[in-house]
Simulated assay, not measured.
Amino acid sequence: MTTTTSVGSLLRTWRERRGISQLELAGRADSSSRHISFIETGRSRPSEEMVLRLADRLDVPVRERNALLLAAGYAPVYAQTPLDDPSMGTLREGLERLLTGYEPYPALIVDGTYHVIAANRGILMLLDGLPEHLLVPPLNAMRITLHPEGLAPRIVNFKEWRGHLLAQMERQIALARSEPLRALYEEVAAYPVPVPDRPGDAEPAEPVPYFALPLVIEHDGQVLSFVSSISTFNTPMDVTVAELAIETMLPADPATVKYLRSLGG
């Protein structure tokens, strides 16, 4: 009997979330729409290979691929190794070199719910002066950015940047079944929006033609502008690695470059 936790119902949910038909999924997976229908209704039990193939064609997150395998009666194939495990030593060293090499520009690494795994001195500079309760581990990048006692009052174009971050989280929630991420979204979306000290917040008198939406933030009397780039790992085989994201903040104007280089000495 098919239940709400059967592999068929889970696959159907993912297919509908991706907005594709059984026929289209069948074509992508070298199968038939009849077979896909039988799997979704519980009339056919997919092989382990088929579960993984369908998960790949549906771009199911690695963590949820394990859930699909378990629902189909198979053992998970993707490990979830703590980042401090000795086997992750080479990865950790590489990430640390990447962050250090990006200095004096800010860069950090977060997990799937925006907990900060590592950050360089450029990020620590931006966090200088924040209240202690926001800096108690584990740090959360979304809380620190959007909290009214966090970076929010320092962000010149806060309304735009807040909208960008919330939309980013909404897209992630739509693509992955993550209750912790949804809970974080509901928390930070409910934060009160600080009243700007500056008139015409997010509307400079002389707009700068940025090539992407910048984070415009005040630091020690300076107005700094950054554009964000996020990198993830290709074809990850571990849940921990699959959920890591490396965010680098690229200076968006010459004044920001000059200021940060003067700090980097």
Rank of each mutant, 00 (worst) to 15 (best):
M1Y: 05
T2M: 11
T3L: 04
T3V: 01
T5H: 13
V7R: 06
G8W: 09
R17C: 02
R18E: 04
I20F: 08
S21C: 05
L23R: 09
D30T: 09
S33D: 08
R34I: 10
S37H: 14
I39N: 05
E40H: 10
G42R: 12
R43D: 07
S44A: 15
R45A: 13
R45P: 00
E49P: 00
V51S: 03
V51N: 02
R53T: 15
L58V: 06
L58F: 12
V60L: 06
V62W: 14
E64A: 14
G73Q: 07
G73D: 05
A75M: 12
P76F: 07
Y78A: 13
T81K: 13
T81E: 11
D84P: 00
P86M: 13
G89T: 15
L91D: 05
E93R: 15
L95Y: 08
E96G: 00
E96P: 00
L99D: 02
T100P: 01
G101A: 14
P106R: 07
L108H: 11
D111E: 01
D111H: 02
Y114K: 04
Y114F: 12
Y114G: 01
I117C: 05
A119V: 03
N120D: 01
R121H: 11
L124S: 07
P131D: 14
P131M: 11
E132H: 07
H133R: 15
L134W: 14
L135Q: 13
V136Q: 14
P137A: 13
P138A: 08
P138G: 08
A141M: 10
I144Y: 03
E149Y: 00
G150S: 13
G150H: 12
L151E: 02
P153R: 10
V156I: 03
N157E: 01
K159M: 04
G163Y: 07
H164F: 14
A167W: 08
A167V: 01
Q168K: 14
E170V: 11
E170F: 07
R171H: 11
Q172D: 11
I173D: 01
A174I: 01
A176N: 07
R177D: 12
S178H: 06
S178I: 08
L181M: 11
R182N: 04
A183K: 13
L184V: 11
V188S: 04
A190R: 06
V193I: 15
P194L: 03
P196Q: 11
R198G: 00
G200K: 06
D201S: 15
P207K: 09
V208R: 04
D220H: 12
S228M: 10
S228D: 02
I230Y: 00
S231Q: 11
S231P: 01
M237I: 12
V239H: 06
V241K: 10
A242V: 07
L244H: 13
A245D: 04
A245F: 08
M249S: 02
P251L: 02
A252L: 05
P254E: 13
K258A: 14
Y259R: 15
S262V: 09
G265A: 12
G265H: 14
